[in-house]
Design a protein around this nucleic acid. Sequence first.
DNA 1: TACAAATCTCAAATTTTTCTCAAATTCCCC
DNA 2: GGGGAATTTGAGAAAAATTTGAGATTTGTA
Lengths: 223, 223
Amino acid sequence: MAYRVLVADDEPKVVAMLRSFLERRGYEVSCACDGPEAVEKAKTLPDLILLDINMPRMDGIEVCRAIRDRVTCPILFLTARDGDEDKVESFASGGDDYIVKPFSLAELGARIEAHLRRDRRSRDIQRKVFGDITVDYSAREVTVRGERLSFNRKDFDIIKLLSLNRGQVFHRAKIYDRVWGLDGDGDDSVIMEHIRTIRLTFAKAGCENCIETVWGIGYKWIG
Amino acid sequence: MAYRVLVADDEPKVVAMLRSFLERRGYEVSCACDGPEAVEKAKTLPDLILLDINMPRMDGIEVCRAIRDRVTCPILFLTARDGDEDKVESFASGGDDYIVKPFSLAELGARIEAHLRRDRRSRDIQRKVFGDITVDYSAREVTVRGERLSFNRKDFDIIKLLSLNRGQVFHRAKIYDRVWGLDGDGDDSVIMEHIRTIRLTFAKAGCENCIETVWGIGYKWIG
DNA sequence: TACAAATCTCAAATTTTTCTCAAATTCCCC
DNA sequence: GGGGAATTTGAGAAAAATTTGAGATTTGTA
């Protein structure tokens, strides 16, 4: 499942820019253009929130105070104000970071990743993103553009093996060994069958060619 | 008990200033004046580390890489370098924050507090909200749209384990270990039975599918 | 101690996954 | 282009895992 980021800013230009940047990086983005809307959308429990401080009707700091009890995800303030007092107040309201505009997107991206990584570490979650596809190994879940695909045990185990080793070709016998265990007298047709159901499920979600056939050898994950 | 902060910087003046500032705020401070010393002192497992990037023999980023696997506490870089690349590399090495010198002590204090707070928060969560469902861990209470559901001890322990790790799949044996204790020779059917009663109780309150079955593996909390 | 609630057991019923096998198709190389 | 091996497809059988139902046992408490 891709990370869901909530962006709250009253300037449409900024929102559009952030959305495009974040989506390009594989996040799922939702937006709010004022304080109350941000509070409302925070109820969907995003994985991270970017909060502008200057917003009409309710400023970012008030939003943060309002949601802090219910939302445990990292909250990053974005703002043009560079005063010490603003910073101290932002952190005191429950914020996790404070980024002064204009900021570089590279830095923003790195900070977002760092916060998500810490969150992940404290929750022991592991996932990998391949463009539209996200594979979450601890949830045993695959998501394609937000749509959740369900795989049964063997299918997921195969996806896990291949996707953790993207680009590497696996013989069918090798897949059998790794997924079924070394004792089994693996029959290639079993693997082929599983590959088929995996492909079918991905195809239904509009995602072809995640797994490529390498003639005479086996399969590899393209992602 | 006071939080222990490790300060690593090769300039004695900076170290002295930070030490005095931090001690005035009630932290217990230890210092290192070069990279290897920082790595060594990190073994005492401080609660937070302030790391200068420019240090003799081994720079801050190398230090961070060296200790990241063993040390889970927040690592904050302090540096005079303000380039994007430095920042990105610092976060990539496992850092949690990047503060450019000269910084205000008020901001530094606020950032340190924020990082420690998050660490604390992830250790003792009081309650969590999942849409209609609220799980209160200190009161051992579950509420669905205001209606209070009652669960017996084991059932609640299972709910707690799963809901604190939303999305993560737990093997039945794992659930047994975590809820009953490691010694028990857990029988899967016990877990299945408890899951059933939990589901029944939630269903009566009009709340289906909080717990999802992952075939061949176990269960996970959807919320 | 006795009662009620909580916890555990076990086998039948159900659901889902996994495997099998032959026909159809695709791909590679001559 | 054609032969032959490799792969995909399709449908259904076999196997495995889970849920359900009914009751036995244990535990906590008045």
